[in-house]
Amino acid sequence: MSLKKIGALAAVATLGLGLAACGGDPTEGDAAASDTIVVGSADFPENEIIAEIYAQALEAKGIKVEKKLRIGAREAYIPALEKGEIDLLPEYSGNLLAYFDKDTTATSTEQVDDALDDALPSKLEVLDAAPAEDKDSLNVTKKFSTDNGVTSIADLSKVKDLKLAANPEFKTRNYGIPGLEKVYGIKDVDFTAISDGGGPNTLKALLEGKVDVANIYSTTPSIKANDLVTLEDPENLIAAQNVIPVINKKKASDKVEDVLDAVSEKLTTEDLLDLNGQNQGDDKVAPATLAKQWLEDKGLV
């Protein structure tokens, strides 16, 4: 086939695809049809549940939704958002900020939200953050809390030979061992690295008294189930991680924003604990079912 013919064929094909893909705006390029919102999620259950909530809430208001859930880690789904392969995804404010601004010093909810507006690429924006947070949290047993009078991270400075278990990165991250010393003056922590993200082995070490403090994500059902005391963080050592919708600006119509704002307003950390508990407990309720229940309970559908 001659080059000319290939060129002509390619032109025809492109034109055809272009016509088929977009009903209106020809600048949309490879994105999905302009009135459909593609909802994505990270590859873990909680995020999938929130994505389902977004998707079902939008659908209930007559907005066309397509789901591409469980995409992977931030390194995979943020580029997909920027390319327009997905339009909307539930994120965690502090981590999202750290992805775009590695040297950020913002830690409180307000600081993080402000910084996010500047740090995001121009194609993306974040809507209102929910009160719900899923972040690193330092936990002690009820007994340790009572015996030592510890309810806040600041109280830990009076405990001698403090033993702490967390993921390995806690040793070097700003919110970890270096931060404990810099912000709260807690020194000489006996650190045990357990690579299960605050999972069963970390929990066991805490319950058996092998360690005094364990870093467990704040929406992990085991915190509630074992009556653990989550230490307060008055100096905001650990950055805020409010659940926040990040969306392709082109798709953020007033109607879409209203729906998502209404969802965020109602979503609390307690809700996440409860939803995760049902998803990971004996019943293993599916994310889509949990999302439907939650929306009905809150009167959003």
């Binding site: 390995p168 990165e169 070097t172 690295a193």
Partner: peptide, 11 residues
Amino acid sequence: RYIIDGQRSSD
């Protein structure tokens, strides 16, 4: 430790 810590902190 070097392998596990290095991986988790992208070192």
